[in-house]
Each structure stands twice: as structure tokens, then as C-alpha cells.
Design a protein around this nucleic acid. Structure first.
Lengths: 203, 203, 203, 203
DNA sequence: TTATAAACGAGACGGTACGTCCTGTCTTTTA
DNA sequence: TAAAAGACAGGACGTACCGTCTCGTTTATAA
């Protein structure tokens, strides 16, 4: 985890002074702190370097841009996943999905995700990176539950788990973008239930 | 429309030289052009001023920031709404919603919407503004169709139109954010159909 | 006095609303006040207009530039000349010249004079104007005294009054420019006496 | 020489990348060139940066204002001092002083000196700086000659060399300020001779 | 054990853009 | 038709960061 994006050649004999793990930690912590305080737009690499007590090149040696640094920092900022399976898929969804929604529509993480799209040139690459690092494990948790629901015959067998996730998380994200306030607990639950309904076999 | 965000006192007797409507038009057109070319991040107020043949202060007199200018420009960039009612709600949704999805997940407009969230301080105010100017009329078109569907008894009477819109548009937006590619026609249609299913009365 | 530099055609039939003398006074007073407060460099036409409760064009209609306005203002700022002739030329010089020195090396007036030179293009014209309006009457006072001294046989008959004035006033001005402090009373008197010595017939 | 006005802490261990002497040279040369071409008023830091092929911050890192930069540039612009002692003090003065007068009343240098006074807040500090860098060595040359004259018994022993210099240079400067033309050779010589006369022992 | 290589903090570099201020002109409304 | 108000194009200001590039100084592996 938190592996720097710019990795030194792995096959190389690794001569010279090795990178300082302490510096790496300090940088990510500073990034997380500043991200929480001023948001993505007003976070500057310079400020991160200053707070971490580190030179700017030490940051650029590891991360090629502010956005990539933030993506790594986001992981630290995000609360750990707690799969917490009760055995009942709907109950599980009702518990976990709102957490992930809150996660993504609370400022720093959401802003980082959303910042991806601002630069057309790098959007694809960074989305790929964020997908692998942050989104994938969270989507996997939901996909698992959906699989259980399929196996239990509680939902149709031909559902598209990816689209199902897009529907739930997307509704929350769009709600937040357009209204500048995160979905509340009740709305979150209603979104889950509505999407769950759409998965039902008989209608 | 395209009224500047920084409106001069409306009740005042309007003394002094009035603002030049030609300059306003030139600025918005330049903004639209540059937005299409280089995207939100690389659009600079300076470049807009230069292309519009206008001084920077003339821009700042009307719009307090690049973002607010872009929000006004987005309206012009967005293709006009063509309600095109066939009489059948589902057919209408299948035609219109994918258009709006494409609209929002094609770079310039989507990037502008998404840029809102990057600055916590102004997110609320700008979202309000974008909502009133761009989103509201588009949501209204969908809400109208949903109302017709309710009236025709094709969907339940207690549906939440706002959430329904969030589900459809959100799924497309989230898809685009996370994968850096807009939803294709087929996916768009499947999103509409899936959400339509969730509105069905009997299941 | 204080006639505007840009005079309306005198032969013209003077149609329309006449210029407001009150505005003129307010402008000059504002200029004087601001000149004393912030000096020539930081005086802006805009600030003068604002303080005078006048539009900028009203100023530009009368004075073609900030410098010309200031030259007019300087006249008001300068203490009135008090010829105060005691009958003895040297005594008169010792009394009057230090006053003029203080005048010119106290900030606002000195700064205005000195500001003339900053723009090569307009230096000549503005110096001419300042000469006619402010300097000439003051030089005349000294020249008068020198003439009396010549007539009284106290100094040589072939002195060059202009150069004599340049020596005295120049010494004070240069002193101020180079040291940022005006000549004190004693130094002023020593300058006068030294120059007076150079005018003596026998040596 | 040509040491930047904003000196990095001298006792400090000089950490970080050292300042680029080449950039410094390029900036001063550009400043000199532009100063000669358009004068002090129309010289902009931006133009200097552009011509020197340097970023604006690189200039502001060294000089806090256009004026301080120009003071440094003036030194380069000024023709080198050529003491050229003939052994006879009056001959020396007649040769050297008019050169210094021409120096100071030829546009760029004179305008820079005179520009000092325009901003009351910084006049003292900048005059001090200009004094140390440009004026002092030139005054020293004249003071030396005056000392020789005293030693040779050609002038009184109690003369005030500083005031003597103020008289000669001041007359030339004042002449130029008020008339917008430098003193000609003849006038320069007459000024020197007149002041010389005032130093004579017997009169 | 000594090179050698690469990291380190610091900070200067050429740039770009920012948002502000002011200049001198132009245009409307009010008187 | 002049005055006030204020918008206009333009230009420069001084600042903030960008991402890169030296510096002089550790620190660890390789010779």
C-alpha cells in the first residue's frame, strides 16, 4: 500500500542511498492534512513539502503530479473497509453502501475523485490508477454481496453488478455534485432499496 | 439568458456607461471555444480575454472567477434541449436521457460540473448557480416525462422523480469519472431501462 | 491663477453647460491633499477624482496628465511669496532663499519638480510650464535682490543672476535628493553666504 | 560590484541552489539597455525580464523594486571614472566636473537619481544605497582634488568640500531639471570657475 | 575502506497565470 | 452641451506555484 507511483527500477542493483521511508510517510500525512483543510484545488505541492519538512524534488521523485500524490493520500484518508457481513445481502448493502457514499461525498476524497476529470489529457491514466488503488476494493465488496444475493436467488441471475454499483454510487455522487451536500442516511437507504428493487426477478 | 453573474444593482437608476453587450458575447464565445479546445483546467482567463479582444478587468467586472464564467459559457456550449415527445414515456426517456448523459460526460460540460466540487468554499454557491442555469431545465424535461408516466399508470404513483433522475444521470457521470470514457449508447439505454424497471408497480 | 491647462476655445461662443468652477477647486484641493499624503508617485488621477467627487473625464478635460494637474496644484501648496525687503540685499537673501529651499525640498513640491524629469518625452514641455507658473516668480524675487545688490555696488556688475540662482537652489535640491533630508537652516545660510562671496568684486 | 540589493544572508551556510550569476548579469544588461532606450518611467520590470530571458520572480528575488534594480544598473551605465590628474587642481576640476555633470544630466542616470525622490517612503533608503554605490566614488574624486588645492594653498583651508560639491553638481542638476536641457560645456566651466572663486582665500 | 551512486533539504530557475490597479478614452444619463 | 458616473482596452504590477535544476550533504552499497 501507499507505494509511490514512480517506482525505481526494480531489477536494478539499487545502489546509492535508498529512499527514506520516513519522508514518504511525512509527505502523505502532510498531504492528507492539507487536503482535509483546504481541499484539492488549494492544496499545493509546495505547501505539502513545507509541512512535511521535505524538499519539493523529494515529492516529485515519487509522484509525478499533485493529483497522483493525492490519490495515494486518499487511500490513507479513507476509512478502512469493514466488510461486516450479516449473511443477508440487503441488510449488508444497507449498511455498507451508505458508508461508501459518505466516504465519496465527504469533501476530500470526493474532491480528489472528481479532480481526475478536470484534465482531459491525464483523466484516463489517473482514473485507472485510482480505480486500482481505491475504487476496486470497494466495488469488490459490493460485488461480493450482489453475488451472494444472486446465489441466494434473491435477485435475478442476469444482473450487471458493475452497472448496479454505478447506479448506487453515481446517484450519491451526482446528488452531492449538484447540491453541494452529501446524501443523508435516509436518502442513501432509499437509493439502495430502489436499486435493489430493480434487481428483483418478478415484476 | 447569459446574464453575468455579477449583476449591477438592479434597482439603481443605472448611471454611467452601460456594460457593453458585445463584449459580453465575445467573452462567452471565446470561453466556449477555449473550453472546447483545452478543457477547464487549461482554460485561463487571460486567454479568454485575449481571444475576446477584451481587457481582463472587463471579465472580472462580470464574473468573479474563472469557474463562474465557465458556468455561464456552459449554457451556450450545451446543445439545445429538444423535448421531442413521442407520447410514450419510456420511448421518450430512451431518446432524451442518453442525450443528456452524453452532454454531461463529454468533456467540457462534464468537466465544468465536476470542477465545482474542487473548491469547498464555493461549491454550494456555484452548484446553486449551475443548478438554476443549466441543470434545472434539463431535469424538468425528465421530470415531465416521469409525470406523464405516472399519469398514464405506467409507473407507480409514489416514485421520487428527483432520485430517479439522480440514479440515471449519476450512473452515467460516475461511469465517466471512474473509467474516463462516456457511457455508450447501449449502456445508456440499459441504465434507463433498469431504472424504469425499478419504477414498476407490480413486482 | 490655477487656470486650467486645457483652456476651452476663448473665441468660441461658449455654448452648453459652462464648466463648474467648484469642480475645479475641488479637484485642485484634492490633488494637494493627496500629494501631501502619499507623494507624487502614489498619487493617482482616480484617487483625486474620487476625493473631489468628480468623474475622471472632468479632470482630463482640464489637464492632460497627472503631472500637469500636479503642477497646478503645487502652486496652491506653495506658501505665498513674502518679498519682505529689509533694504539690505544680503539680509534679504538670507531670509528669502532658505524659505524657497525649504519649499522645494519639502516633499510635495520637490517631488513634483523632480517628477518632471522622469519622462523624457514630456520633460521639456512640463518644465516650461512649471517654470512659467511656479519657478519664474520665485526666481524673479531673487533676481530683484541681486539687481539691488549690483546697483548698490555690493557685488560685481557682471554677475550672472540665473547661474547664481541655480547655484543656491541647486545645492539645496541636490543635497535633498542625495541625502533625503532638506538642508537645515544653518546649511541654507552657509550656502547663501558662500555664493554671495563668489559675487564679491575684489578677491 | 553589481551586488544585488537583496543579499542573501552572508553568514548563513548558503544552502540550496546558488543564485545564477549569469542571470544577474543578463538582467542588469537588459535594464541598462531599456533604461537608455525608454527612460526610467517607461521601463517595466516585465520588459527587463523578457529581454533578459528571465522570469519576473528571478528579478524580484534580488531587487525589491524597479528603482533598486535601476540603481544597480546605473552603475553599469555610468562611464568609468577617469581620475586623470594633471597636477593642477583647477584644471582637473574643469576637466572632471563637467563630465560628472553630463553624466548626471544625461537622461538615464539623471532620471534614476531624480526618481529616488518620488516615493517618500523609500527615498532615504534608496538615496543611501545610490550614495554608496554611485555617488560616493564620484564625490571622492572631486574631494581629492579639493584637498590637493587646499594643500597647495590655492584655496582656503576651511572650505567645506561637501557643500562645494553640492554647489557645482546641484547647479547642473537644477539647470537640467528646470530647463530640460543639460548644461553645455561653457556653462559647466563657468559653474566650476564661479565656485572656485568662492573658495579663494583673499577677497 | 574507499569510491560511487543516489537520496536528502534547500532553494533558485524560467514560466504561466493570477487578480488588482491605473491609465486615458468612450458612452450613457442627468441637468 | 457639460457634468457624474462608470465601462472600456490595455498594460504592468507583485505574488503564487508549477515542475526542473543545481547545490552541498548524508547514507548505503559495490569495488
Amino acid at each position: 500500500m501507499a507505494t509511490p507511483s514512480v517506482v525505481p527500477g526494480p531489477g536494478a542493483p539499487r545502489r546509492g542511498r535508498p529512499r527514506d521511508a520516513k519522508a514518504e510517510r511525512a509527505i502523505l500525512e502532510a498531504a492528507v492534512a492539507i487536503l482535509s483543510e483546504v481541499g484539492f484545488t488549494h492544496l499545493s505541492v509546495e505547501a505539502v513539502a513545507a509541512r512535511a519538512g521535505v524538499g519539493k524534488p523529494t515529492i516529485y521523485r515519487r509522484w509525478p503530479s499533485k493529483l497522483e500524490l493525492v490519490i495515494d493520500a486518499v487511500e490513507r484518508l479513507a476509512p478502512p473497509l469493514q466488510p461486516a457481513s450479516t449473511g443477508d445481502p440487503l441488510t449488508d448493502l444497507r449498511q455498507i453502501v451508505p458508508q461508501l457514499m459518505a466516504d465519496v461525498t465527504s469533501s476530500p476524497i470526493g474532491r480528489a475523485i472528481v479532480a481526475l476529470a478536470n484534465d482531459a489529457e491525464t483523466h484516463a491514466e489517473l482514473a485507472r490508477r485510482l480505480g486500482a488503488r481505491y475504487l476496486a476494493p470497494r466495488r469488490a465488496v459490493i460485488a461480493d454481496i450482489l453475488r451472494q444475493a444472486v446465489d441466494a436467488g434473491q435477485v435475478r441471475g442476469d444482473i450487471d453488478p458493475e452497472m448496479t454499483i454505478d447506479l448506487m454510487m453515481g446517484a450519491a455522487l451526482y446528488h452531492w455534485l449538484a447540491r453541494a451536500q452529501p446524501v443523508d442516511a435516509d436518502t442513501g437507504r432509499r437509493i439502495v432499496d430502489t436499486v435493489w428493487d430493480s434487481l428483483q426477478p418478478s415484476r
